[in-house]
Amino acid sequence: MTTLQTVFAKAKADERAALVGYLPAGFPTKDGAIAAATAMVEAGCDVIEIGLPYSDPLMDGPTIQDAVHRALTNGTRIADVLRTVEGVAKTGAATLVMTYWNPIDRYGAERFARDLADAGGVGTITPDLTPEESGPWRQASADAGIDTVFLVAPSSTEERIQAVADCCTGFVYAASLMGVTGARDSVSSAAQGLVERTRAHTDLPVCVGLGVGNGRQAAEVAGYADGVIVGSAFIRRILDAPDEASGLAAVRELGAELAAGVRA
């Protein structure tokens, strides 16, 4: 199992940023998600976030909403999410689950942390779990030996950044802009400032997500962040492909472009 610590140490030694790819479990199909995530790893992703499809994804834009809706429609359940993590972790990528809080809350925090660790997962990203409410989850994660990642945003005050960073163990997720997930034409100018402000509060790696979708943007973000997170752009390639094989080819192509970007 590759840990986040190993990934970021290696990327640092290579003087580059890590590449983090996101894909919901069950999209485009249950097995198709494992195949697509594997293609992302083969193309150069160091870390994979497997999304846990949830009925009310209120911080996601249309692309991820569409993918998640398809995953739920094809009957994707938590067992499928864990099976996806298991399949992707075998590739050697550090594999996380990104999820809204309620599915873990309902499944049971200790049980989820344990089952995720057993599947080879190294941690979670929980975008709607605030530091104030995160105590039980951090305890369960620590007990299971998995990392916790939370988000800071351009609107975060210094106190909030400190509070969020204090709850993170793997890295800190810096949301580049005020808005929902989805590729944008340019990376928000707020991102670099947020990364710098975050560094003042923690020694953990800081990764930037939201709005990154091509090699040029990846290179730009890699200039100041420890990791570049891409989700919607991968999903878009799969959605736009006429069949699964060409979808995988498009994912590989984007992965390679982004991998070159973080090394530029």
Binding site: D128, E132, E133, L151, A153, P154, S155, R160, A175, M178
Partner: peptide, 20 residues
């Protein structure tokens, strides 16, 4: 202070909305 009525309430939202 955390917006809780007993165990209920609170805030489960993206960090971006906390300042607002």
């Amino acid at each position: 202070v955390h917006g809780k009525f007993g165990i209920f309430g609170g805030r489960y939202v993206p960090e971006a909305l906390i300042p607002a």
